[in-house]
């Protein structure tokens, strides 16, 4: 058992536990904070996959910006009390749980077909994989047009958010 295996299982179990807390906790604030924890543990698994840059982006954008936005909205709407979220067993809930479990069974069946460990890489390649320099080089050469399209998308999202949320313009 080397450190990578131990860290992977620790991160996996903690991520699953906090994801369960997101679903199970009754107040939206607890859900949001559990989601922040999930994002941090997922960032840990990203680092284990040598995706350092994406892990940093995950912490900055997801755990930082997006979750602050969520907490801000919860605070703004004063949602601290639960909105009558009764733990009743209804047909919809049972059907939802069944759908989720059967989807997981199907995905697990497919995923088990992926054999083998990650490809071994030479030391020079390994030092470069997942770094900001390598990501930037791929992004700004091969994927320049999608990158610009995403910047346009973000602009549209900013304008749209203002238009939707503002009572009167």
């Amino acid at each position: 058992m080397n450190a990578e295996v131990v860290l992977f299982y620790a991160f996996a179990v903690l991520a699953l536990l906090s994801a369960g807390m997101v679903i199970a906790s009754r107040s939206p604030i607890n859900s949001a904070l559990s989601l922040v924890a999930t994002f941090f543990f997922l960032a840990g698994t990203y680092v284990l996959l040598l995706a350092h840059t994406i892990a940093v982006l995950q912490v900055l954008v997801y755990a930082g910006a997006i979750m602050v936005l969520f907490l801000f909205v919860i605070m703004l709407l004063n949602l601290t009390e639960t909105e009558g979220e009764r733990a009743k067993v209804t047909f919809g809930r049972v059907a939802g749980a069944l759908a989720a479990v059967s989807l997981f069974a199907l995905l697990a069946l497919v995923v088990m077909g992926v054999k083998g460990a990650p490809t071994a890489m030479a030391t020079a390649e390994l030092a470069r994989f997942g770094t900001l320099a390598a990501l930037g080089q791929t992004l700004y050469t091969e994927w320049l047009l999608p990158f610009e399209a995403v910047s346009l998308l973000l602009l549209v999202a900013i304008v749209g958010a203002v238009v939707v949320a503002k009572a009167r313009i």
Binding site: A19, I23, R93, A95, A100, L103, V111, K115, A117
Partner: peptide
């Protein structure tokens, strides 16, 4: 080294938990 299928299993489990939440929470 952790086999790739373990990462994929974790992703599948998280996806299904998210789906469960979308279907169950109000």
């Amino acid at each position: 080294m952790v086999p790739t299928s373990n990462y994929l299993l974790l992703a599948a489990a998280l996806f299904c938990m998210g789906m469960l939440g979308v279907l169950v929470r109000r």
